[in-house]
Amino acid sequence: MSNRNSSRTRNSKPSLARQVIPAIVLTSAGVGFVSLLDGPQNSGEALDTLGAANTQSDSVNQTTIVNAPVDSSAPVAGAATQVQTTLTPVPTVVATTPTVAGAVVTVAPVTALPTTALPTTAPPTTAPAPVDNSCTGDAVNSPSVNFRWGVMQLQATFTKSNVLCDVTVLQYPNDRRTSVEINQYSLPIYNQEAIATHSAKIRAVSGATYSWQAYSTALQAVLDSRP
């Protein structure tokens, strides 16, 4: 719990809520990991619970998280509670035992991404805000959290309309070779132009095996043909 306190002190920058809340979200995700690590025999149950929570209230979770980082005047503690209860969409990395390299990430379905949440973030004048879904807004780092198997730090990135769009693992324990970065977002990529502008980073695509006939329209074909 000391981690949460340290995150509250990070108020030197403007937009206090945006700085602090994601840090708390990520930290409490970390606390969740610790509790799982503390009870490896229960990890299966815990995973099931996470999965169940995910399927029950995906859209609710998405929108709540979306609303949370807005520059509201709500007290930080209250907002933090709200976010903590809707934690499931944040990628969850679980090690079943400290010595085994294990990560399970349950990614929420493609629903209710930024556009449905925009009205609540728009200014009260009801003027239609331009939709900017690019993941280029503020980036907020969580405090480094000590786990039994090492130090971990996460980074949350927001779109310009304050939608949580990316969670990145900044720091992994050194004794694991896994500097795995998992970004949770959904990108509609239908053509070469979209790939070029939105996800130049992606170099290959993994999915269930496609047929040779399907390859011509598959993302991998676009990546292969891109210079």
Binding site: V110, I189, S199, A204, V205
Partner: peptide, 24 residues
């Protein structure tokens, strides 16, 4: 110099990327 970045496709729509993994 970056790690290979691989997109995992959406199972219901192969043209959607659900998340990316930077492969060690």
């Amino acid at each position: 110099g970056e790690l290979w970045s691989v997109g995992i496709t959406d199972p219901q729509d192969q043209n959607l990327v659900r998340c990316t993994i930077d492969i060690p």
